[in-house]
């Protein structure tokens, strides 16, 4: 059994070598397919990152009237903090608000002058509310309509990252759809090429196969090299793909920091952490698909 397995592997390598160019074409097609799939994975990662990045920055500023007391403001802060949708509430007191305003307009004499005309501090306190997800904002805004606070609140300002997120989503959704269609087409071509490679392989080896059967090789032994070749193809294809994907991701990832305020896209980390899953599953699925194509080809052309 062990001897036969080794021999079947040897025969598979011989087959691969004898149809070298055909094997190369087959593996290349598998690599193309896997590359599109990996591009999709990268895209998925970057999108997720971009969306969380944008979502992190969505906030509602709740401006209180200057005459509202610090208790009323902190009541509202505590109330918001208690909502499960709220991630973080920051309180900017009226004094801080005034300081910020002065700082921002430090170079503008006119504004500073008009500010000093006003009695006391014209600024009220502000709450800066962050949510867990963009979808939670309508709820939070509604919650602030609570009669307990409503009359103290001058204005609610919804800094709108929402449209950005929508744009990210719709763009990536479209790219993703295109990517899925492309990998689908590549996969189909890959299957046909594997099928054809096996067909030609059977044709090239038909004499050898005939002799094998005449001298008493079992059917399993006749078929095994073709199936082992499948494993060889996917192993090669996945390895080559990994060798292309890793350096590409490594060079690409830091470039994302331009968009993400100095943070990387996290794609490299994702790949380094999960490479055995990502490529392991690709290998297994690719092998299974190849084997199915091979078995269909053998059933059709290998009369055993």
């Amino acid at each position: 059994m062990f001897t036969s397995t080794l021999r079947a592997i040897k025969f598979a390598f011989q087959k691969f070598g004898r149809n070298f160019w055909l094997s190369i074409i087959t593996v290349s097609m598998l690599v193309f397919t896997l590359l599109t799939i990996n591009i999709l994975i990268v895209l998925q990662q970057v999108t997720t990152k971009a969306i969380t990045f944008a979502e992190d920055r969505i906030e509602v500023s709740v401006y209180f009237y200057p005459n509202s007391t610090i208790e009323q403001v902190s009541d509202a802060a505590v109330y918001l903090q208690g909502l499960p949708q709220v991630r973080d509430v920051a309180v900017i007191t009226s004094d801080e608000a005034l300081e910020r305003f002065k700082l921002r307009h430090a170079s503008d004499e006119v504004i500073l002058a008009s500010l000093s005309e006003v009695d006391g501090n014209p600024f009220g306190a502000t709450l800066v509310v962050k949510a867990h997800s963009a979808d939670d904002f309508p709820f939070i805004l509604d919650a602030l309509d609570n009669p307990k606070f409503r009359d103290d609140i001058r204005e609610k300002d919804f800094s709108s990252y929402e449209s950005i997120i929508d744009r990210i989503r719709s763009t990536t959704d479209r790219i993703q759809l295109f990517g899925i269609a492309l990998s689908g087409i590549f996969l189909l071509i890959a299957i046909l090429i594997v099928f054809n490679t096996v067909r030609i392989g059977i044709f090239i080896h038909r004499e050898e196969i005939g002799i094998m059967k005449l001298v008493g090789a079992s059917n399993a032994f006749v078929r095994a090299p073709f199936l082992i070749e499948c494993i060889l193809y996917s192993l090669l294809a996945v390895t080559i793909t990994a060798l292309i994907v890793f350096p590409s991701v490594a060079t690409m990832d830091p470039k994302f920091s331009l968009f993400f305020n100095g943070e990387t896209g996290g794609v490299l980390t994702y790949f380094s952490k999960n490479w055995y899953w990502i490529f392991g599953i690709q290998f297994i699925v690719m092998t299974i698909i190849n084997m199915l194509a091979t078995m269909v080809a053998m059933r059709k052309y290998l009369k055993v």
Binding site: M1, T3, S4, R7, I211, M212, V215, G216, A217, F221, V222
Partner: peptide, 11 residues
């Protein structure tokens, strides 16, 4: 040797 190889005979 081929006839023996494919029948799983030892080297």
């Amino acid at each position: 040797a081929f006839a023996l190889e494919v029948a799983g005979v030892s080297n």
